[in-house]
């Protein structure tokens, strides 16, 4: 396996980590205004992700940095091509980050309600747009011979991409609802479980349609053959099992399974891309690949060593932080803020 492939996998891993972790905290953010009936409940809901959301977001920063370092042309074409989509993502993520810190710092109910809605918007819009962006990498967008995106904003809003966006939102919200069921108790936990149960069917339908369209509609099946279909199947089966565990109150397992769904859906996407990183809808020759978009072998080597050393350490202390805050948040918990 060459370094280009290793870095392609590594960026896949970083996006998987980002979607898995930020997936539930986007979900929690989307559910916040609906599951928190009064101020204290909202504070509890926010505190379930309070210690983690920022570090979860660093997975995105790292994925972006890794893309820049390993595949500068991918980074350049994607970020300039999807300009308005990424701009909207930034805008809403800024508001979300500020909202976490600002919302409790004033007692005015309108102030709090404003920031709570910003957490909602800042969770919903990026979730949707990541689905749209990822789908378009695979489906193909107008890229010319000089690796420049020549489409507009509305090229991105095709049915497949919108379906993937919807799937991201539904699966993340489900993931978040299960996380909240686990991390809270009493009324909030009950409500979160009810939401999870209600979201399950739409999430399954949406995921099956999206994976089906991705697999058969983007030429993936023709390129890869039938064997890798196991991967999207695992994603679907895991999601199907979620309901079974939810009804038996085995919430921890249900959470693991939505995680499996997110991970295997992301892997499906990256498998469909490989060895391309961005498909050109104008000519197959103009697609960006792990070779024509990559950095020099020397840079890839340096970065491989760096990542090999640092990534395990990061995983270790991030896991430790989840261990510290493993307990459920109850109404009597001291709500640091």
């Amino acid at each position: 396996m060459d370094l280009n492939t290793i870095w392609f996998i590594l960026i896949g891993v970083l996006f998987t980590g980002f979607f898995f972790l930020e997936g539930f905290d986007f979900g929690v953010g989307i559910l916040l205004p609906f599951l928190g009936k009064e101020d204290k409940e909202r504070r509890i809901i926010i505190n379930t992700i309070g210690p983690h959301w920022d570090a979860n977001e660093v997975w995105l920063v790292t994925a972006g940095g890794a893309m820049f370092a390993a595949f500068p042309n991918w980074y350049a074409t994607l970020f300039s091509g999807f300009y308005l989509a990424l701009f909207l993502m930034l805008l809403t993520m800024i508001l979300r980050a500020v909202a976490f810190e600002f919302r409790s710092k004033d007692k005015n109910p309108r102030w709090r309600s404003w920031w709570d809605w910003m957490i909602f918007v800042g969770s919903l819009v990026p979730a949707l747009l990541w689905g749209v962006a990822m789908a378009n990498l695979l489906r193909g967008v107008p890229i010319d011979a000089s690796m420049t995106y020549v489409g507009g904003f509305f090229n991105l809003l095709n049915p497949f991409a919108l379906l993937c966006g919807l799937t991201f939102v539904l699966v993340f919200t489900l993931h978040g609802a299960i996380f909240l069921t686990l991390k809270t108790d009493g009324q909030i936990s009950k409500r979160a479980r009810a939401v999870a149960k209600a979201l399950w069917i739409p999430a399954v339908v949406s995921l099956v349609l999206a994976l089906g369209m991705g697999y058969f509609g983007t030429g993936m099946a023709a390129r890869l053959g039938v064997a890798p279909i196991v991967v999207p199947l695992i994603a679907v089966v895991a999601l199907l099992l979620v309901s079974w565990f939810l009804y038996r109150e085995r919430t921890g397992l249900a959470f693991v399974l939505t995680g499996v769904t997110i991970a295997f859906s992301t892997i499906t996407l990256f498998m469909g891309l490989y060895p391309r990183v961005m498909v050109s809808s104008l000519s197959p020759d103009w697609s960006l690949t792990i070779y024509n978009a990559s950095s020099s072998p020397y840079t890839l080597k340096v970065m491989s060593i760096v990542a090999l050393i640092l990534l395990p350490i990061v995983l270790a202390y991030q896991a430790w932080s989840y261990w510290i805050f493993r307990q459920r948040l109850v109404r009597e918990s001291p709500l640091e803020y």
Binding site: M67, F68, A69, A70, P72, A76, S295, S296, V306, A307
Partner: peptide, 13 residues
């Protein structure tokens, strides 16, 4: 990108 991306990625990691 071959040069500039590396410190950026390391900064994050």
């Amino acid at each position: 990108g071959d040069i500039f991306g590396a410190p950026l990625a390391i900064e994050a990691l």
